[in-house]
Amino acid sequence: MSEKITTKAQADEFLDSYDNFLFDCDGVLWQGSELLPYVVETLDLLRSKGKKLIFVTNNSTKSRQAYTKKFKGLGIDVTAEEIFGSSYSAAVYLKQVVKFPADKKVLVLGESGVEEELASEGVQFVGGTDPSLRRDITPEDYPLIKPDPSIGAVLCGLDLHINYLKMAMALVNLQVPSTLFLATNIDSTYPTNGKLFPGAGTISAPLILASKRQPVSLGKPSQAMMDCIKAKFEFDPVRTVMVGDRLDTDIQFGLSGGLGTLMVLTGVQTEADLAESAAAATPVVPKFYMSKLGDLYELSK
């Protein structure tokens, strides 16, 4: 069973157990555009104790540079080097892991965050935020939608302007066996402003059904993302904890990577979800949980 941290002694022991803290963002640090209570104070407390902070997000709509602006707007000081998003993970995977050919392009279903990170790694792309694709499909498009030999991969992120035209273009290219099928992440939902909206997984799901192919996911809980993070930051997993609000992504990500795990109840999952998961045939159970991240600061006083 998970241990709920409710006392100063528990909080102090928890803080002494880890040197590196990996944080999910949405639902842990903020909800939509609202900072959660005592987040800044908690992060300052961790920095004062010499802890390394790494912010790991599945939100592919923003690049690391864009995320630093969001953090700053909420009063949190971070550097782009401390942020590891699923868009960046996908770019690193293409450039460094599969050695994506320089003469090939990635067909993007996603927002500017994906484009910016691909560009930062020198990977060519098409689609994405191209305004000419933000329209309804017409019969005149049908003969023009066919496999493009210059496209070597289809990459799906959260696309706020998804439409049938983009889906058709992606599917015809996925029918070429050599075309890579990638997803920044496969989250079913996206928490914002206290609600759950469709997540990035709902963009790749129709293509999975139609193509009968499974994408390589480059976000939590994929260990492809964990491998990239470990390579960049070179930390000891035993002295590292993953802090998140979702069992199927954040907590599974930490458990699979051999990290400690802390779940907060300010995002997707509830205490009832935790109990249900603990009783499941294949339980996903964090080592610790608490009502909110700010409890660490409040309990430390």
Score class of each variant (00 low, 15 high):
I83W: 12
D103A: 15
F100N: 01
P177G: 02
G157V: 10
I83Q: 05
S150R: 15
V114G: 00
S87Y: 05
L155Q: 04
L160V: 13
R134E: 12
F84V: 06
F181W: 06
L171P: 07
D148T: 15
V97P: 00
I145P: 08
F125I: 02
M169W: 14
T138S: 12
E81Q: 09
L158R: 07
K95G: 00
R134V: 13
P139S: 02
D159N: 09
L174G: 04
K99A: 12
A168M: 11
T129G: 00
Q96T: 09
D103K: 13
P149L: 03
F84E: 03
D159S: 09
K195T: 13
D130G: 04
N193S: 14
Y190I: 12
I83F: 08
C156K: 07
T184C: 15
F181E: 03
Y164L: 14
F197A: 14
G152R: 03
F100C: 06
N193H: 14
E116Y: 01
L109D: 13
N163W: 09
F125H: 11
V123Q: 01
P149K: 06
K104N: 07
E140L: 04
T179W: 11
A153M: 08
D136N: 14
Q96N: 12
D159Q: 03
I145Y: 11
N173V: 08
S120A: 15
L107I: 15
V172K: 01
V123T: 11
S132K: 09
L160D: 10
K99Q: 12
Y88M: 13
K105P: 08
E140T: 07
A170W: 05
S89P: 01
E116G: 00
E140M: 02
V106K: 00
L165N: 06
V106F: 10
E116P: 01
V154P: 03
K95M: 00
L133D: 09
V108D: 02
P143Q: 03
V92C: 04
I137Y: 04
V108L: 10
N185T: 04
P101Q: 10
P101A: 10
L180P: 03
K104G: 08
L171Q: 04
L165Y: 14
A119T: 14
I162D: 02
I137V: 15
S132W: 02
L109K: 13
E82I: 08
Y88A: 06
L171C: 04
L109G: 11
Y88K: 06
N163T: 13
A91E: 00
Y190E: 00
G85R: 01
G122C: 10
G157D: 05
T129A: 01
M167W: 12
